[in-house]
Simulated scan of single mutants.
Amino acid sequence: MTFESSSRAWMNAELDMLRDTARRFFETECAPRQADWAKQQHIDREMWSRAGELGLLCAGIPEQYGGGGGSFLHEAVICEEQMRALVNSFSINVHSGIVAHYLLAYGTEAQKQSWLPKMTRGEIVAAIAMTEPGAGTDLQRIKTTAIRDGDHYVINGAKTFITNGYHADLICVAVKTDPQAKAKGVSLVMIETRDLPGFRRGKLLDKIGQHGQDTVELFFDDMRVPVGNLLGEEEGRGFAQLMQQLPRERLLLAVGSAATMQRAVDDTLAYVRERNVFGAPLMSLQNTRFKLAECQTQATIARTFVDDCIAKLARGELDVPTAAMAKWWISQTTCQVIDECLQLHGGYGYMNEYPIARMYTDARVGRIYGGANEVMKEIIARAMDQKV
């Protein structure tokens, strides 16, 4: 079973070529270095430039801004190959699939021309900073403030769990431009971090999985940023901007989870065919066969759901509740399938030298980031309650 199956209606020859390029890059240039990156807790900076050279950054951004001129389909293919190769030490999703599209949707022409071409080439690395020590999914309660002082915002506060934060040159920061308001007080401000007074990165955070992913804390102490770095035409639009982009972001998470789920099944099938128990291949035991049949069925359902959501997004029809369904169900099911697959590996499944062990810890965060799964269910329930 592979993700390039001809049964996927949205695939075409151009996307197949992109898939081949992405697969070679992640398998040959990235996967062999995962262990080293895990030890240092971040990738080597030049890998961003290398990804840019190969056209793997900002593939869904128009060519006039230096991008690949593709669509979400191109980003989905890259995401699938990155997760299939178990290369999670840098987030192209955040850089290309999230921050670049905030700029494309809400940025001024000057902002787009200034930042998007550099992001495409990998000259600058992008991150988004929403979560705070005291505010996770509930973004209306963030405490980081941006108070206008002439032609600048003075920003004070802290952010945590920031993906790509170690290398980030450009960060989209959720702030309160009106500290007394809730949703209407939230704005998004772009900050260029190089030599920026008042900007400080905290330590690399020690996580149970995704050890090579540079996840850090950020601190802003009277940090001055030009008012022209506001994203959007006016203050107070940040919460609406975040909500508008969330279906796309959550679908990317579902795409990656589905790819990981299939990789877990494929690896386990190969293992049980070779592993002998009681003088016969482990695959010959009915329990093994039934468990794998269940896992492959779930992986196939996940892939089918993802494909349907991708088609909806391409038509402009993917709504918030459906994206929430895809995010929570596929991330949850991925964890369950990986657990079953690890069990079939026996003691070897508990050894980090086997990919299934890394999948087990790496996948767990999928139920948390992008909005905790409990919040996804609340979004779905509210939509159901509103139906007449």
Rank of each mutant, 00 (worst) to 15 (best):
M11V: 14
G69S: 04
D149F: 03
L57C: 08
D149H: 09
S187E: 03
T108G: 11
D151W: 02
Q343G: 09
R382L: 08
A270D: 15
P197Y: 04
G370D: 01
L269Y: 11
R121E: 13
L170W: 05
F90E: 00
D169Y: 07
G202L: 01
K39N: 03
T334W: 05
T215A: 03
Y271M: 12
G236N: 01
A168D: 02
N93D: 11
R121V: 02
D267L: 15
R148Q: 14
L218D: 01
V189L: 10
M119G: 06
G165K: 03
P179S: 07
R273S: 11
G52M: 10
A372V: 12
G107F: 06
L292T: 07
T2N: 14
G134A: 07
Q296E: 15
G52I: 07
A158H: 06
Y350G: 03
M223A: 11
C58A: 13
A135K: 01
E234R: 15
E29N: 02
R84E: 15
V216G: 00
L344D: 05
R121N: 08
T177R: 06
T120M: 11
P117R: 10
Q180D: 12
I78R: 03
M119A: 13
V388G: 10
S6W: 10
N88Q: 07
G346L: 09
A323W: 03
D308T: 14
D221T: 10
A254R: 12
F239G: 01
F90R: 05
L139I: 08
V255S: 02
G256M: 08
G60I: 01
T193P: 06
G366Y: 04
I356W: 05
C172M: 14
T361M: 12
N352I: 06
A38M: 00
P32F: 03
V186R: 00
Q241C: 05
G150A: 01
K182S: 10
T145F: 02
N12A: 10
V388F: 11
K203V: 05
T322L: 14
K143E: 13
L103V: 06
A174F: 12
I191N: 04
D214S: 15
E63D: 11
A59I: 03
N164A: 06
R248S: 02
